[in-house]
C-alpha cells in the first residue's frame, strides 16, 4: 500500500544494491572532501548518506529527465549543510554529473556550494541552510498537494540538532493540525551538535515521545541499516492518510571513517591527500566487514 510508485521504466533496487550505492556515495564524498580546498560538513554528510541513498534510489518518486514533473515527490533538505551529500546522491540518480560537482564545488559562480540554492541549481526543490526552516516549507508543499488532490509525498530530512529550533515544532503541530499524512520527515539522529554532544547540552530525550506527543506516526530505525530503512519506506502509510510520519534514524556522525566517527572535530573539515587515503582505507574496511 505505502510502497511508492516509480517513474515508468524503472526497477527497484535490492538492499544489497542500495548498500553498494551508499558506499559509492561515501567514497565520492570523501574524494570531494579530500580535493576541495575548503571545509566540507563531512560528519553530517556521512551520517545522512544511507538516508539520502534510500530516498533518491528507492523511496522517492523522482524524475531527473523532467524536474518539474508534477507527479514527483518533493524533497526538502532541512539540514542544508549536508548539501554536498544531496548533490552527489542526486548526481548518482541522474540529475547532475558528479564530475561537475567535484570540479566546481564552492568556486565562484558554481551552482554547487555549502548550502543548496534552488535558483542557482534547478532540480533542487528548495533553498535551505538556515536550520529549522525546512519542515515549515514541507508543510506548505504538502498542503499544496492536498489542495490539488495530488498523491505525491513530501519528504524532509532534518538533523536532530536543528530540532532545537522552535519553528520545527510549529511545523510539527501544523502538519498534524492539517492532517498531512503526505509528509514524511527523516531525522538524522546523530546525537551531535556542532560544538557538543546532543544530550550534554540539550535534553532531546525522550525524543520519539516528543514527536508522538505532536501526533506524528513515529518509526525508529537504525539509520545505517539499509534493510531497516527500506522496510520503513515500504511501510509508509498512504499519502492520503491523516497522520504525518517521522522516521527517526539513529546514526553516527562521520559514519564509515573511524577517525571521524563521533568526533566533534569532524563536524566540518578538509581532508587533504594524505588523510583522504587514510579515510578511504577506513571506509573500505567497513565495506569488507559489512558486505563480505
Amino acid at each position: 500500500m505505502g510502497q511508492p510508485t516509480l517513474i515508468a521504466g524503472e526497477t527497484r533496487h535490492t538492499v544489497a544494491e542500495l548498500e553498494e550505492l551508499a558506499f559509492e556515495l561515501r567514497s565520492k564524498l570523501l574524494h570531494l572532501c579530500g580535493t576541495y580546498e575548503g571545509a566540507v560538513h563531512i560528519g553530517g554528510d556521512l551520517s545522512v548518506a544511507d538516508i539520502l541513498t534510500v530516498l533518491y534510489q528507492y523511496g522517492m518518486n523522482v524524475d531527473p529527465t523532467n524536474i518539474a514533473n508534477p507527479a514527483r515527490d518533493r524533497f526538502v533538505l532541512s539540514k542544508g549543510h549536508a548539501a554536498v551529500c544531496m548533490y552527489i546522491a542526486m548526481a548518482m540518480r541522474g540529475f547532475f554529473s558528479y564530475e561537475g560537482i567535484v570540479e566546481t564545488y564552492g568556486q565562484l559562480d558554481s551552482a554547487y556550494g555549502m548550502h543548496p540554492c534552488k535558483v542557482q541549481l534547478p532540480g533542487v526543490e528548495c533553498s535551505t541552510g538556515s536550520l529549522g526552516h525546512g519542515l515549515p516549507i514541507a508543510v506548505g508543499m504538502a498542503l499544496s498537494a492536498r489542495g490539488r488532490g495530488d498523491t505525491h509525498r513530501v519528504f524532509c530530512v532534518l538533523g536532530d540538532g536543528e530540532t532545537g529550533e522552535g519553528s520545527v515544532w510549529e511545523a510539527a503541530m501544523a502538519a498534524r493540525s492539517n492532517e498531512l499524512g503526505n509528509i514524511v520527515a527523516f531525522v538524522d539522529r546523530n546525537r551531535q551538535l556542532m560544538t557538543s554532544f546532543a544530550e550534554e547540552r540539550v535534553a532531546f530525550e525522550p525524543y520519539p515521545d516528543k514527536w508522538a506527543a505532536f501526533g506524528w506516526n513515529v518509526v525508529m530505525v537504525d539509520g545505517h541499516d539499509m534493510g531497516q530503512l527500506v522496510a520503513a519506506v515500504d511501510a509508509l502509510p498512504a499519502s492520503d492518510s491523516k497522520r504525518p510520519t517521522v522516521i527517526i534514524c539513529e546514526t553516527i556522525k562521520g559514519k564509515g571513517v573511524d577517525f571521524m566517527e563521533k568526533n566533534l572535530a569532524w563536524h566540518a573539515g578538509r581532508l587533504g591527500a594524505a588523510d583522504l587515503e587514510k579515510a578511504m582505507t577506513a571506509l573500505n574496511s567497513t565495506r569488507k566487514k559489512e558486505t563480505v
Binding site: P136, G140, L143, A171
Partner: peptide
C-alpha cells in the same frame, strides 16, 4: 514562523 514557511512551500 511556520505561517511564512508554509507560504514559501505553497509558492514553491
Amino acid at each position: 514562523q511556520v505561517c511564512v514557511g508554509i507560504a514559501s512551500g505553497l509558492a514553491y
